[in-house]
Simulated scan of single mutants.
Amino acid sequence: MTEITCTCGTVALSLSGQPIMAAECHCTSCRAAAARLGAAITEPNGGTRFVIQRKDRAKVERGAELLASFRLTPQAHTQRIVATCCNSPMWLEFKGGHWLSVYAARWPDSSAPAPELRTMTRDAPAPLPDDLPNARTHSAGSMARLFWAWMRMGFRNPTAADVRRTFNA
């Protein structure tokens, strides 16, 4: 079990089981969200690190009433869940997704799993090192891992509200 918290520690999210993957995203919307949220969630190269976790293995332990949704536009298919007590981005949710993209910056003592790949690098403003696979869009391997996780979930698709409820996975 891993517990991650907002910056001030008022909101806590527990994660059980192994993550689906750890990745660093370079898409334009992740960079725009980081700039608008004013949060220290980006890497020195401009990417945003996420740990991808099944929704049925995530549970808000405390502070659910302090979570709010942030969208770049009203039509956006993604929402960033932010702890309003200290303006800490907690996770990103894709509309219809069965996973949460939890901000690696939320892990204590920089203990988040290391990224396994970079995604959406076609949007990166500068060349990236070749120390990780640099997928220009979403890689087939990462999509296969998401599908495999969904299959193991029985093709269920919990919502962000489900993460706020107490349940066992």
Rank of each mutant, 00 (worst) to 15 (best):
M151S: 07
C8Q: 00
R165A: 14
E61S: 10
L146G: 12
D131N: 08
R152P: 10
G97M: 04
P108V: 04
P125Q: 05
R156D: 09
N168I: 08
E65I: 06
L15Y: 02
T119Q: 11
R80W: 14
A23I: 15
T2A: 08
P108D: 08
G63I: 11
G154P: 01
A35T: 14
R71I: 06
E3W: 06
F147K: 02
A33V: 14
I52N: 14
M153Q: 12
G96H: 06
H138P: 02
G63F: 08
R152S: 15
P127A: 13
L66M: 05
S110M: 05
V60P: 03
L117A: 15
A169D: 14
A22I: 01
A23N: 12
A64D: 13
C25D: 08
S142Y: 11
L72N: 06
L100S: 12
L100Y: 06
N87P: 04
S16Y: 04
A35D: 13
P19D: 09
T137I: 12
P158L: 05
E61A: 12
L37K: 00
D123A: 10
L67S: 02
P158C: 06
A83F: 00
P74D: 09
L15S: 05
R36H: 13
P19R: 03
P89Q: 02
R62I: 11
T42L: 02
V163N: 00
Q75K: 09
T2S: 07
E116M: 11
M153H: 03
V11Y: 03
